[in-house]
Design a protein around this nucleic acid. Sequence first.
RNA 1: GCUGGCGUAGCUCAGUUGGUCAGAGCAGCUGAUUUGUAAUCAGCAGGUCGUGGGUUCGAAUCCCUCCGCCAGCUCCA
Length: 644
Amino acid sequence: MPIKLTFPDGTVNEFPEGTSGADVAASIGRSLAKAAVAVSLDGELLDLSRVLPGDGPFAVITDTTDQGRSVIRHSAAHVLAQAVLDLYAGASFAIGPAIEDGFYYDFDIGRGFVPDDLEAIEARMTEIIAEDQPFQRDIIAAEEAKALFADQPFKIEIIEGVDEAEGAGGTEVSVYRNLDFVDLCRGPHLPSTGRIKAVKLLRSAGSYWRGDENKPQLQRIYGTAWESQQTLTDHLERIEQARLRDHRRIGHELDLFSSPPELGPGLSLWHPKGGLLRKVIDDYSRRIHQQYGFDFVVTPHVAKEQLWAISGHLDFYADNMYPRMELDGEEGYRVKPMNCPFHVLIYRSSARSYRQLPIRLSELGAVYRYERSGTLQGLLRVRGMVQDDSHTFCRRDQLADELDRHLDFVLAMFSDFGFDDVEAELSTRDPDKWMGELDLWDEATEALRATLDKRGVAYEIGEGEAAFYGPKIDVHVRDALGRRWQCSTIQLDFNFPQAFDLDYATADNDRARPVMIHCAKLGAMERFIAVMIEHYAGALPAWLSPVQATVVPVADRHDPYAATVVERLRAEPIRAEADLSDESLGEKVRRAITHKHPAVIVVGDRDVESGTVGLRLRGETEERRGVPLADAVVELAALCSPPR
RNA sequence: GCUGGCGUAGCUCAGUUGGUCAGAGCAGCUGAUUUGUAAUCAGCAGGUCGUGGGUUCGAAUCCCUCCGCCAGCUCCA
């Protein structure tokens, strides 16, 4: 019986029974057949050589698509495992998927891999690829597979766990062979190893079996594979570009902050330029919080340990808190890892009425968390940070509107900072770990979903990912290099109102419990600034630049005029500085440009005479001479004005 | 915390069978230069080669400890 395939263009084509994906690709065109790495039938990816089992929507997966590359990388992972098993007697192998931009495979060879190992492995992989070994798919009984992998404990565990993702399911499992190497795998794979045109091993690192730190530690090798040497080279170039944008590097070059070893890991010092940047962001933050109806509060850095017991932090967060401080004749104190208990105490400081709600308490609060040493990462993960934190207390009937307001706020804020590409994750109730009322959870989760839909934000659902005390939305921004960073979180909290027995008087003069929304907008200032630096490669938007204009006199005799220009700009106010150092003009211009100053203003004889300046904005390769000072001021004022 | 890597002047780095190996560029300081848009010239100064042990006639170079940093795992703003 012929099979009917629906092509991506909507046409339905008939093929005789026994037709393979490769046959179909060849019937469409030679170049397509050449670029094909797999096919998809009814949403399922199949090897090119597989006989198509039935009708359905059909597409050829080519090697330049994400899906195609993932097939290449998956096959490369197999070749990696093959090479490691060849080279290291007694090695066991675990799992090896394709990941974004590459692949990895986890092994146990009784020790770690060192760089020389990677070199040897990559050389062996190159041989296997040159041999162009065909990948061959087999379905075998689970019992047979267990015999086949008798000396491979991780594979046995996968088979016994009938892990579909690894090709095991029920009584049968699929395996892929090339030469004498065989691996459990769902597929699909390239027709042969020779189709891996470019591969490179990048690094090794420890990883835990099943991602569980209580299970054995394996050695993971990361690599990347591409359809051509050129795309591999381009990828490596992108990695290098990312390295050049590293906020630690740029932060030092622009003299924004430092983290000297004497200070302690995860702590940072903000130098004058960085301090100014912080101030600009703080000022902005206060303005927009005010516009969205938040009130400002200030709370201390430490509190009695008992407070953290009531809040539940000692039960659930103690591992991330700095240890107790002993004081003579007093109970212990703890440094705050969060601001919530304080804001709750402020709410509770007087009797609340339904008329007062919602109450939105906001604070740029410095918090300290004892993060495990291995997790620290520049300013992206620190132990001391300032959060733009808020806690909103509202009635249940106000919840949907409040959530919508919070999300609107967050989106407006990111947009002001130049991040328009945002994605969210909606975390829902963990059926085994939750507290409170079921219908409130459902209502709140629906409200979160509705506001995401209303604002048109793309989101994924993290089923069961919510903390026990409430569902949440995490908002991620995508930077110029396509990397995703989590910044905001909008989180319902059903625990605090109960733990602190919060209430308000209803219209009927009953007592009701308020709902609480915890929200960090930019998140941690340290992280957000790091993300911005990498996003903009240090060239921050003018309104954020610590120095907005550098005035360069051509010769000493122009210094007084330069000072006048600076004064005029500062009156705007524009953050301007004159460079009166004993350097050549070219050097001063270069210095201003490499320090990413948004505007360079050069003044010489002609400017002094006619009240003009030479203006060169960031990104412009040519200067504009003879611009009247007044015009330049207007232009720069517009350029440098904050969005709110 | 775990695995691997790294740690030489403020910064970027050279220094590989352990024996003038303590160097370069940039930054800094001093002097000269007064310049019209991405590096003016010269001189000077600057490091107990992360820390503490050990091996050796001799260690930046080999071994161990600790500290810090980087990549990843786990976790997460």
